[in-house]
Nucleic acid binder design. Structure first.
Length: 837
RNA sequence: GCCCUUGUGGCGGAAUGGUAGACGCAACGGACUUAAAAUCCGUUGGUUUGAACAAAGCCGUGCCAGUUCGAGUCUGGCCAAGGGCACCA
């Protein structure tokens, strides 16, 4: 017997798989297709055990589905544009491209392949290569043509560390998502946006179609989209007969209680609406508000501030003059950028009115009475002080008031979303250039499709990190001719958010080498949607929302035929470990100083053991704490499998055997082993299915089978024919069941067992239903629901017999003495519960 | 503040409303060995009675109620931890 040497066999089989191309996905194959996808990584340079998890989960699924007879697409690529490469360039004076390429080579060959993953590398995509970003740019042009990409001047989030603007989704608690210590600043800038809000309703509604998504992810998206139903009311302005201020409200029922209006400091009409004598104060206020960081503006207990503009509006319901104010508690890009102030029934308005002594008019009451309010009354109630609407419930009032406003031309029903348009320009070099040219005579002109790609200039670029994007100084590149009038013009220097690249990579995999189009429609419609997507919860909104939006927009452009890109989603939990820096268990990451590298462990114990541990230690959605001790435990399990195999081969001339045993097995211990083997096939198959994905219990069941086999063979050196069959059956099927989890050791043992290649091309086993039937059961006897005794009896006895048997047990009799028997509940073959008084 | 999720041994975690703690880690004991490591076989929730390595009892799934013959599992309330949103009108 040789020793189990993972290092040797793992590299041997990795080479064999590559040479024989057994993981190739075939376009339009006869077998049913299965698209298994894992979120492609950013090539940061070094994967650690924390990264292993997602690839392992996805690989187990891919390998299992192949054995089940699917034509599996399991691709891999790199999300290769982005800031770290550029920052590395600034620090180390290398080019971002070289840095990125070096990292990709290392991750691909030294890490992903060594883990035993089964990717079809022929379909690799690298988003920073021009044969990929050409299509990123082409898609941008489609968005532009369809008026979904547009420019606007807007208050944007600026990260001083990234030196660029960020999308809303990329700001967390007022901090940059990449720098949780860096406050995002607010700036007014002219920027490129994608009109994701046009799809808000569909993005929300189609969440219901995503039966295979975790509820929490759908809920997060729902909250992010943030639909509110209400009304828009328009207010005339005293002295400006042709102007109106529209406001959005969810409480039109409180219209009679409006005592003022507030507009955002950035509101476009603000200077027009400001009286000369208020001008200085208002301008000063606007300036101050503009300088606040997001966190200061949103601070929870921040006292309300604001100044009056001096002009008045008319409340169309009461015909009263109400003052117009500006305050930073109103944000420009939600609703209409203006709100109606109803202090009696809104906490924020109440606070504002108290501070500035504005009138408070109660119009909703729980009991119909008016009283002095100490705080805003925000609950439901009856309408009062509301003219002809008095006495209505406020819910009815919402409808009646809006209808009334519509009739009088000062309002309508309206729905608003919290979702904002996606800001996609970035003031950085290492991204796909936005294919647009600025011409003094023609204005904004799109680069024509046959001029693509707009290549990133690579020569003579200096990375200093100062003075904005290096593209601003690449004069040969920057200065160009206008596509329409041929006069001198300048290129757009902003590049695209890298989330654009990752919003369609899963489509490109279907046709990765196509140099004529982004993808052939037929191929995309064949492979997509993705059957199983695996990735981290951190993309619950970001990448997953953007990709859903892309799919819907591309469908509307006629490029594909489906509504949702990812049918099933598995959000795996993070890998944690004790961090000495934080003094607690934390997500494994370089910055927290708690990473465990892959190479050392692979060298000593093998990728198979690492894969098993990471799957075994907890269910996939939960966190898992890395423990090298625990992983060694799985290495020991593999050694046990290895030794068991050679022990049996020496003593029983083990052979490939996967037929069911038809004759009745007499020997009870052997019969039980056969039952356990079949039970293992059943449960592992269930645990690995998409309804469960409980790889931890699947591995536990296989461990139990191995333990049972050890118990069976202990002290035995010779075996009869039927024993040889049962043992061969158990080993043959164990190797197949274990193959997706531990692909190398099973391949090696399979070759030794069968002399053939490959275990990964075997059919997934089925189990012998008859073997699972036992003729004895454990009957539990309870008194008042508490376990008293357990009897082993024949299966299928009548209820009455079980009851008599239970009542005759000594331990039962002892306890029933002097008590009154109320009733006996019998669950056949399971339990007898005796109820006493 | 609003919404969601999770609370089970020393630890990670198992349990279609029916024997709580599968499987693994750690710990301990035995066999093998000159010895150690490795391996194989066991023990391991707490507690009480008992001379006992015999045997038996009681308690136990965050806390308090409820439904049920029976609750880790279902319902309501509370506590704690984690996550999402947040001056969104």
């Amino acid at each position: 017997m040789t020793n189990y040497s993972p290092k040797e066999i793992e590299s041997k089989w990795q080479a064999a798989w590559e040479n024989t191309q057994i993981h190739k996905a075939i376009d339009f194959d006869n077998k049913p297709k299965y698209y298994s996808l894992v979120m492609f990584p950013y090539p940061s340079g070094d994967l650690h055990m924390g990264h292993m998890r997602v690839y392992t989960i996805s690989d187990v699924i891919s390998r299992h589905r192949r054995m089940c007879g699917f034509n599996v697409l399991n691709p891999m690529g790199f999300d290769a544009f982005g800031l770290p490469a550029e920052n590395a360039a600034i620090e180390r004076k290398t080019h971002p491209k070289q840095w990125t390429q070096k990292n990709i080579d290392y991750m691909k060959n030294q890490q992903l392949k060594r883990m035993g993953t089964s990717y079809d590398w022929d379909r690799e995509v690298v988003s920073c290569n021009s044969d990929y970003y050409k299509w990123t740019q082409w898609l941008f042009l489609q968005f532009y043509k369809n008026k979904i990409a547009y420019q606007k001047e807007a208050p944007v989030n600026w990260c001083p560390k990234c030196q660029t603007v960020l999308a809303n989704e990329q700001v967390e608690d007022g901090m940059c998502w990449r720098h949780d210590d860096t406050l995002v600043e607010r700036k007014m800038m002219r920027q490129w946006f994608l009109k994701i809000t046009q799809y808000a309703e569909e993005l929300l509604n189609d969440l219901d179609k995503l039966q295979g998504w975790p509820e929490r992810v759908k809920l997060m998206q729902k909250n992010w989209i943030g639909k509110s139903v209400g009304a828009e009311l328009a207010f005339s302005i005293v002295g400006h007969e042709n102007l109106k201020i529209p406001v959005f409200t969810t409480r039109p029922d409180t219209a009679f209680g409006i005592t003022y209006l507030v507009v955002a400091p950035e509101y476009s009409l603000i200077s027009k609406l400001t009286l000369p004598e208020n001008k200085d104060k208002v301008e000063e206020y606007i300036k101050k508000a503009g300088h606040l960081t997001e966190i200061e503006r949103l601070a929870e207990n921040k006292e309300k501030t604001g100044v009056p503009l001096g002009t008045f509006a008319i409340n169309p319901f009461t015909n009263e003059k109400i003052p117009i104010w500006t305050s930073d508690y109103v944000v420009l890009d939600y609703g209409t950028g203006a709100v109606m102030g109803v202090p009696a029934h809104d906490e924020r308005d109440f606070e504002f009115a108290k501070k500035f002594n504005l009138p408070i008019q109660q119009v909703i009451s729980p009991d119909g009475l008016t009283r002095n309010l100490d705080e805003a009354f925000t609950a439901s109630g009856i309408m009062i002080n509301s003219g002809s609407f008095n006495g209505l419930s406020n819910e009815e009032g919402k409808i009646k008031i809006t209808e009334h406003a519509a009739k009088n031309n000062c309002g309508s029903f309206r729905v608003t979303y919290r979702l904002r348009d996606w800001l996609i320009s970035r003031q950085r070099y290492w991204g796909a250039p936005i294919p647009v040219i600025y011409c003094d005579s023609c204005g904004v002109v799109a680069v024509s499709e046959n001029e693509l790609p707009v290549l990133l200039p690579e020569e003579d670029i200096e990375f200093t990190g100062l003075g904005g994007s290096p593209l601003l100084r690449a004069s040969d590149w920057l200065n160009t001719k206008c596509p329409s009038c041929k006069k001198n013009a300048k290129r757009e220097t902003d590049t695209m958010d890298t989330f654009i690249c990752s919003s369609y990579y899963y489509l490109r995999y279907a046709d990765a080498k196509n140099n004529k189009e982004a993808f052939e429609k037929k191929k995309v419609n064949y492979w997509l949607p993705v059957d199983q997507y695996v990735g981290g919860i951190e993309h619950a909104i970001l990448h997953l929302l953007y990709s859903r939006f892309f799919t819907k927009a591309l469908r509307d452009f006629g490029l594909l035929n489906f509504d949702e890109p990812f049918t099933n989603l598995l959000s795996q939990g993070m890998v944690t470990m004790f961090s000495p820096k934080e003094g607690k268990i934390a997500k494994m990451s370089k910055s927290k100083g708690n990473v465990v590298g892959t190479s050392e462990f692979f060298d000593q114990y093998g990728a198979d053991a690492a894969r098993l541990f990471i799957l075994f230690a907890s269910p996939p959605e939960q966190e898992v704490e890395w423990s090298t001790q625990g992983a060694i435990g799985q290495y020991r399990f593999l050694e046990r499998v290895w030794r068991l195999f050679f022990n049996l081969r020496e003593n029983t001339s083990l052979f490939l055997f996967d037929k069911f045993i038809e004759i009745n097995i007499e020997e009870p211990v052997l019969k039980d082993l056969y039952r356990v083997a079949n039970y293992t096939i059943k449960t592992v198959s269930e645990d690995i299915s998409k309804e469960k994905y409980t790889f931890n219990t699947a591995i536990a069941r296989m461990t139990e089978l191995v333990n049972s086999m050890y118990k069976f063979i202990i002290g035995k050196t010779s075996y009869n024919d039927i024993e040889k069959q049962v043992l061969s059956f158990s080993i043959t099927n164990l190797l197949k069941l274990l193959a997706p989890f531990a692909p190398h050791i099973t391949e090696e043992l399979w070759e030794r067992l069968s002399g053939s290649y490959s275990v990964h091309q075997q059919k997934w086993p089925t189990y012998d239903e008859a073997a699972l039937i036992t003729d004895e059961i454990q009957l539990v006897i309870q008194i008042g629901g508490k376990k008293i005794d357990v009897l082993t009896t024949k299966k299928g006895l009548p209820q009455k017999d079980l009851e008599i048997m239970a009542l005759n047990q000594e331990r039962v009799k002892l306890r029933l003495d002097g008590k009154e028997l109320v009733k006996v509940v019998v669950v056949p073959d399971k339990i007898v519960n005796i109820v006493v008084k």
